[in-house]
Design a protein around this nucleic acid. Sequence first.
DNA 1: GATGAATGAGGCTTCATTCAT
DNA 2: CATGAATGAAGCCTCATTCAT
Lengths: 213, 213, 213, 213
Amino acid sequence: MRLATKRKRVLKSPEDRRAEILDAATRVFCDKGVSGATVAEIAEAAGVAKGTVYLYFGSKEHLLVALRDRFTDQLLEHVSDLLSRVGQDDWWGLVDATIESMVDFMIGKEDLMRVFLEEGLSSDVAKVVDVGSRVDSMFAAAIQMGIEAGACKVTDPELMASFFHHALEGYMLHACLHGDAVDRDRFVAAAKELVHKSLSRQEQESWKAPSAS
Amino acid sequence: MRLATKRKRVLKSPEDRRAEILDAATRVFCDKGVSGATVAEIAEAAGVAKGTVYLYFGSKEHLLVALRDRFTDQLLEHVSDLLSRVGQDDWWGLVDATIESMVDFMIGKEDLMRVFLEEGLSSDVAKVVDVGSRVDSMFAAAIQMGIEAGACKVTDPELMASFFHHALEGYMLHACLHGDAVDRDRFVAAAKELVHKSLSRQEQESWKAPSAS
Amino acid sequence: MRLATKRKRVLKSPEDRRAEILDAATRVFCDKGVSGATVAEIAEAAGVAKGTVYLYFGSKEHLLVALRDRFTDQLLEHVSDLLSRVGQDDWWGLVDATIESMVDFMIGKEDLMRVFLEEGLSSDVAKVVDVGSRVDSMFAAAIQMGIEAGACKVTDPELMASFFHHALEGYMLHACLHGDAVDRDRFVAAAKELVHKSLSRQEQESWKAPSAS
Amino acid sequence: MRLATKRKRVLKSPEDRRAEILDAATRVFCDKGVSGATVAEIAEAAGVAKGTVYLYFGSKEHLLVALRDRFTDQLLEHVSDLLSRVGQDDWWGLVDATIESMVDFMIGKEDLMRVFLEEGLSSDVAKVVDVGSRVDSMFAAAIQMGIEAGACKVTDPELMASFFHHALEGYMLHACLHGDAVDRDRFVAAAKELVHKSLSRQEQESWKAPSAS
DNA sequence: GATGAATGAGGCTTCATTCAT
DNA sequence: CATGAATGAAGCCTCATTCAT
């Protein structure tokens, strides 16, 4: 005959509660890593009892899936309108806007990115990689359009897209691991220099576009 | 001056045994992640009993430390001679050699990089980040030298160095997560294009170096 | 003198509600076993909310007690009038009637019997055993009367009563566990053969009543 | 970094240890019921740590399976040689021997029987019932042989076999639930009376074999 | 009254670590 | 030295019970 000695009892809307738990999970996963985090810690961080977590998410794994879904939704929403305008008049303006947009998104979501990165290292790789791949594809498509529009020039658009993606993301993660605050403007400026020069149509004195082999 | 005082045994010197366990740990950590891996699995992969692992490494954590030490030793050895020659006559030649060297090193060590990355996400951040930071610093120093030698031009050498580092590392990890084999030559070519153009002294039509603020 | 003071409601009087929950508990306990059943399942089977169960029964344990009470009441009611007539003229007729009565009762209540049986195996033995013992005592008393009336003969009336009881009950349970439908008439016929012959006054060629020791 | 604070350490042969855990499981399952029992209790009763139980049995469920296997093996071994001789010269002698054998077996195994009975009530019914059914079939076959040999007579051998089985088993369980010690000789004597008279070829004054309907 | 979201004690299971052989 | 059986702390998850609405 068990006794449930109550402490507190706060009733909120299911959506809020779900979001709170997800937020708490993000914090704890980020602090301790996915396998380092315990459901008890997540529950405490969310200000709910352990069992409550299981009311909203069937298991620790489901928490991760929900986190991923929310992240992907937000990412796609964030860039979709930018993407839809790529290929129009001011291609370089769109590139700059996209860079700023990505930087801002990453600055806002660096915690989640770290969590997914760890997850990707161990299990169920496909799902996580998928998010990253989608970013790569998006970048590559944008570059391709720039090439076709005669705005830029690059030998291997796909690899370059991946480089851009990981240069930005990697720097972000690195800064996070250090605990450094990211200087947004400096970040954006450097990213623009990287992208603009790398996609430049001009020949470099130190490097020539390879002739078709 | 160390002498090889041990006669070689038909079956396993302690050094070999140690190295075998470390290799096994690398494989298992890479497959399952650090916290996903069990000492039992590592022992089995190394072909020894669980207890034997504890004979050579005090704990699971010590395995990781040993792995890191070995990695750092190899990394430094790998690039030290290249670094020592930076600043000499053919700066761009050195850059290219460094790029190739890094790519080759990463292709050979991608498994360990993944393991450290995961670890970096949870605990004991300092140690791991240190390795990555050293690469960044090395790159930044090399760029600085190129600038001073008048070979290249870039607004933010540190950030650019970090971008290069993470572009390469990130692409590698991404490919690994996908299970894709990395095309070494394509990788090197694209990396060179990225670096050469990004460090180019020429103004781009789409981008101007900011005036000193 | 109780009066029906409540007007009948269109949807569920408390008594009906209570009975419904009890019926649902019977079904679920029977399907899943007592500790295998959850209050949530019982509530759902009864078409009420979990909390409502606690409105009518203080705890899961109380449900069981209530179930037992209802069962005992029904059992006693079922056989009491038969018992009251034992010892009269047609003893064998009463035996047969009792057998049929027991069989019918068991066929109607096999689900509950199973539940109590499980319960008896774990905790709170006294209560459950009590029900079974009462049946044994009833049987034994009846046999004793038959002996005194000269209608039958048996060496150990108590053990024989227990045998009869468990032969019938055990067969029932066994059939239930198999999911077999019980053939009532075949069951009754075989039970009568068992009882009549076992209580027979005649010596068997293969067996002699032991002389008083 | 967990510390395993050791208390004791006793090394035995795996078979002994396995048997000890199985014995402990029998005791605890019997006391608390299968779902009432905890692995912790079983481990303590066996004098081992919780984890040790999982070294020998993959889960609580596997303990049950192992228990069943051991029981079935012992039962079959116990009666097989008796069975193989049924149908020979002294049929009634064999019946008596079988009764004594069953009683002795049950007295030795009553604890297990109770455990299986409970299990049978909730999950995975088939396996347990199978044991019981095999006993029924064995009895029925023996009766059939007796009939063919002209030694006995009964209308429904199968049902009668089941009655015998459950009369004996049920009485045993009942006695166990009471905590009563079973008087083996009294039990055997009453069982013989039950079986001999029930299988008697003589007509009873109170009961006639039904004519073929 | 009725509801079902919330609670948290407690069960099952895993696995890093120890140590008798 | 090497081994692997044994250990027990700690994690995930279930579910009886409570109580705000």
